[in-house]
Each structure stands twice: as structure tokens, then as C-alpha cells.
């Protein structure tokens, strides 16, 4: 039921049907916080991932993380740890899990879940302040998550 609603919402939102059956937010399975399988069945694109991470309406990761590898970002925040060397500390599957829902790795984390569609308190329609019905479109699409993971995998020291 929840899954069907989700597909309906995706179609209504005008997302084109992907060739590989994307893993929807409700079907993601975690193993100790990590997600082994690519959400799209495809590799991500690191350059697109970097864009997602620095765009306020998308990942906005730099609101909380410094990344020395991105020297052009003005005024990054310092709430989370610097991400340089992330790929030395975490596997691809762990990084995917952190981006999809960091709370599965860090209990009670302040970091938002970027690929989750339900289970919110007073969910809103993006930043309008108006109510929205669950399931919500996740903050990032499956492809954007994969792109971010691809970029994070370049962060080696």
C-alpha cells in the first residue's frame, strides 16, 4: 500500500519511469547502517554529486560540513565533521547508508535523512510552511544519492 502510494506520488511529480526498478525509500534495507546495493543500479557521477552537495535546495551538505577539497565554497558550516578523508573511513555501502539516513549509523544524528519518504512529524511541502501528505518525495532522488556517494568516494587523504 505504502509502496503503491509512493509510486503514484513519483508519477504525479512527473518523474520519468527508470529502466532499472529504482529502490524506493520504503524498500531500502540497511545492514548496520550500510546499504550494499546502488539505489539506481548505476554508478553515480561525482561531478553532479559535488553540485548536489553545494546546492542549498538539494543536499546543502556544506551548511554543516567543511570540505577542504571544495575550496570555492564560501562560508561552509562546522556542525558536522570535515568530510575530507571520508572514503578512507567508510566503505561505499556505509557512505550510501549515511546519505540515505544517517540516523541508522549515528543514533539521533542532527544530519537529515536524504532518502526517506515517511515517518515525519508535521511534514511540510519543501520550504513553504504548508502541510504535505506522506509519502513525500525524498530530499534527493535515487540518482542524486548515488552521485553524492560517487563524490564522497573521491575524498581520500
Amino acid at each position: 500500500m505504502a509502496k503503491r502510494l509512493w509510486v503514484a506520488a513519483a508519477i504525479l511529480a512527473g518523474h520519468s519511469a527508470p529502466a532499472f526498478a529504482e529502490i524506493s525509500p520504503v524498500d531500502v534495507t540497511f545492514a548496520e547502517g550500510a546499504i550494499e546495493q546502488s539505489l539506481t543500479g548505476q554508478a553515480g557521477d561525482a561531478a553532479s554529486g559535488a553540485k548536489v552537495m553545494t546546492t542549498a535546495a538539494l543536499g546543502n551538505c556544506v551548511a554543516c560540513h567543511v570540505i577542504d577539497a571544495m575550496p570555492d565554497v564560501e562560508f561552509p558550516g562546522n556542525i558536522g565533521p570535515p568530510l575530507d578523508g571520508a572514503a578512507d573511513r567508510w566503505s561505499e555501502a556505509q557512505l550510501r547508508g549515511i546519505v540515505v539516513n544517517a540516523k541508522m549509523t549515528f543514533e539521533g544524528s542532527f544530519m537529515p535523512a536524504f532518502y526517506k519518504s515517511a515517518g515525519y512529524i508535521r511534514p511540510g511541502d519543501t520550504y513553504t510552511g504548508k502541510a504535505a501528505q506522506e509519502p513525500l518525495p525524498p530530499i534527493l532522488t535515487a540518482q542524486q544519492v548515488e552521485d553524492v556517494v560517487a563524490y564522497l568516494l573521491t575524498l581520500k587523504e
Binding site: N60, F110, Y120
Partner: peptide, 19 residues
């Protein structure tokens, strides 16, 4: 959808930079 409380920003992270 960001699952944030007042306390996350103004208690646990007061003094930090958010962007």
C-alpha cells in the same frame, strides 16, 4: 522533513556555524 528541533540548533549547536 529535516527532523530538527529548536534544541538541535540553539542548544546543542549554539556557537557553531550553519553555513
Amino acid at each position: 522533513q529535516l527532523e530538527m528541533a529548536c534544541a538541535n540548533c540553539h542548544e546543542q549547536n549554539a556557537g557553531m556555524m550553519i553555513r
